[in-house]
């Protein structure tokens, strides 16, 4: 220890050593990167964001799972922010280190599938199975960036979609018993389906759908459904949250194109 101190003391400019130390470990670059990320991502909870960032940095030893790192990069930002695009790009770069065989590295179906699994952890499995049917690639297939971006984006949006649907369910679940009235759920889902069925080019349909989803339109629809159910005197059924979410996700998945 004493020797070392002497050695550093013997250096011509002791102030320089601090800088050298920083440079050696690339602390400046790291902090700069962190600050840029922090500013561009503008997270709700900055401290947690910083913690997560350092966590992902410290995990960066080659032994660590590529998928986890990619997931961490992707979770830095919400998908609605422009920076998300950058994050997807860097996630793709991380995953392209994946070893296919001795000489070949790149993103293939296997790692793509793993990433999707990891991204969709919180979605009910009934939904993810159907999602993967559309987006899954077989092992030998090389995934281009465009395909990667599209499927990652879909997963991220689906995450939001599922949590929103779950929220919707709690709204529908008036008695807070975990079971919502079947008629109510079905007519709500019907409204959603009709809205989603409208193509984006058909302006008239879009106007109609947005009217139907407005409080008044929705009220009328629910009222109609309720009267109809009453006239039929159907047995009252229930929807659980998972059922409802997967039904809602079905309409979403219809919009997801099957990879070709």
């Amino acid at each position: 220890m004493a020797d070392r101190r002497k050695a550093s003391g013997a250096a011509p400019e002791p102030a320089e050593t601090d800088r050298q130390f920083m440079d050696k470990n690339n602390v400046n670059g790291l902090l700069k990167d962190l600050l840029t990320k922090l500013i561009s991502n503008r997270p709700d909870d900055p401290i947690r964001f910083i913690a997560n960032y350092f966590e992902s940095v410290t995990l960066e030893d080659p032994a660590n799972d590529l998928v986890n790192r990619a997931v961490q990069v992707l979770s830095l930002t919400h998908h609605s922010r422009p920076v998300f695009e950058n994050n997807v790009r860097s996630a793709f770069l991380i995953l392209s280190k994946h070893k296919v065989n001795k000489r070949l590295h790149g993103v293939n179906g296997t790692i793509h599938g793993q990433l999707m699994q990891a991204l969709c952890q919180n979605i009910p499995s009934a939904v993810t199975i159907r999602l993967f049917k559309r987006l899954e690639c077989s092992e030998h297939e090389a995934i281009t960036y465009d395909v990667f971006r599209s499927s990652v984006f879909t997963c991220c949006v689906l995450n939001d979609y599922a949590s929103l649907a779950a929220n919707l369910f709690t709204t529908l679940d008036i008695q807070k018993t975990g079971k919502a009235d079947k008629n109510l759920c079905e007519s709500t889902l019907d409204q959603l389906r009709t809205a989603l069925a409208s193509s984006r080019k058909d302006v008239k349909r879009i106007m109609e759908s947005s009217y139907n989803l407005a409080p008044e339109g929705l009220y009328l629809a629910l009222e109609r459904a309720y009267k109809w159910a009453m006239s039929r005197r159907q047995a009252q059924g229930f929807y659980t949250q998972d059922q409802f979410v997967s039904e809602a996700a079905e309409t979403f998945l219809a919009k997801v194109k099957k990879l070709k």
């Binding site: 879909t154 949006v157 989803l213 809602a248």
Partner: peptide, 8 residues
């Protein structure tokens, strides 16, 4: 939900 699906 509609907006999200359209976005996707």
């Amino acid at each position: 939900l509609w907006a999200l699906a359209e976005e996707a």
